[in-house]
Amino acid sequence: MDGNRLVGTLGAHVRTWRPYTIWYPGLVGLAGATLAAEPRANAALLAAWFAPTAVWVAAHYLGDYLDRHLDAISKPQRPIPSGRMAPRTALLCGTLLAAAGCAAALAVNWRTILLLAVGIGGALAYNGLFKARGLWGNVVRGALTGAAFAFGTMMTVDFPPVGLLPFVVVFWAHDAASNVVGTLRDVAGDREGGYATFAVRRGLRTAGRTAAALYGLALVTAAFGCLAVPRDRAICLLVVLLAGAVGSTAFGLVLGPRRELTPRTALRAHEVLVAERIVLADALLVPGLGPALALGILVPLLVLTLGVQHRMRSGHEFAPDGQAATAR
């Protein structure tokens, strides 16, 4: 394989990973592990981070495989429809990563097998079935991140503690909201491809308001949850409120007074939520790891997320002028 082809192949895989999202699922799993028990083995913390991350990236590969015909219509620049990645390569990589995540998890706690099955099966069902069925798709997508938090707790205890279950609701509602906002930029392509998302069925304004309501549920639940953590409650709550202040700007873009919500404005709103959720997940690291270490994790990951998103996101979501029309 020559140098240019190798660079192109690596670039196709990196784009499939969506590296601006890659830090989030591991933080969610790590938050669950650190809140559930102390002391904790390093291997358990590593598994709490690695397994959700591996399954998350696997879901990107498998989702792109299942969405390849839809992407050929509205996003022909993506790796599979552009020909830079073969569909079977995406299927193989997704399968191997999912297997690696499962192996790491089961080595620590075999009881996670049900959550792993729900997570992987839910990711496949989202792309293959629920994504085209209105709000059900967003609810299923959010449930996967809620499951990642529950999974993280099971890396340090046998079963998720009842007192931490409200945080499952936090990540479920947050990611359902974020997923609704993410669909707002794709309404034209989803409609053309036959995907009846909630935004396609009910319109941008109703979808935006529904996302805001789900986001509000996540934020309020997180704020009350901070009052029950074992230590550093005030700092945990402060970081949650900081996340809320950032997230509110996204919904200002979505619901602000304007005649029409453009796809690029909707993308900017989702970019804000992609960065904001790093802050939200990090807030729950404060009680378990302490404010200094939690901040030390947050700053570099937030900088990486913002930088990579600025460099890659628009090109991943929008085809160059005329290219989508040519594909259609």
Rank of each mutant, 00 (worst) to 15 (best):
D186K: 08
R264A: 13
L96F: 12
F149W: 08
W136P: 00
L214G: 10
K75Q: 13
R259L: 08
R277I: 09
R205F: 00
W110Q: 03
A51C: 13
V181S: 00
F159L: 11
R202H: 15
G322P: 10
L242G: 09
P257E: 02
D190G: 11
A100K: 04
A99Y: 05
A294E: 06
A58G: 09
L144P: 09
L92W: 11
V139C: 10
I120M: 15
F251H: 04
A147H: 11
G189H: 03
W136N: 01
P76H: 01
G119I: 07
A213M: 10
G216S: 09
L164P: 12
A250P: 08
L285K: 07
T153N: 08
V157W: 06
I297S: 01
L306I: 15
G290A: 12
A48R: 03
A47E: 01
M154A: 05
I297D: 02
A223W: 15
L96I: 08
M312K: 04
A150K: 02
T265M: 05
R311G: 10
S248R: 13
Q323S: 08
P160A: 04
G252N: 04
G163A: 13
A177L: 12
A51Y: 11
R313Y: 05
G3W: 03
R191L: 02
A207Q: 02
G315M: 06
G252S: 06
A36S: 10
A196Y: 12
D232S: 13
L284E: 00
P161N: 04
R268Y: 12
T210W: 00
A212P: 01
V299G: 03
F151I: 00
V118Q: 03
D321S: 09
M1I: 10
T34H: 01
R313T: 09
C93N: 04
E260H: 09
A207C: 07
L35E: 01
Y215S: 12
L304Q: 12
G94C: 04
V239L: 12
K75I: 00
I235E: 11
W136D: 05
A319G: 01
V14L: 15
A245M: 07
G256K: 10
V168Q: 08
L301Y: 04
A58V: 05
D321Y: 12
P76L: 04
H60M: 14
V254Y: 02
C226H: 00
T221F: 04
A222M: 05
G296M: 03
P230A: 14
L255G: 07
S82C: 13
G163Q: 10
L184F: 07
L116C: 07
V239D: 06
A105R: 03
P257C: 05
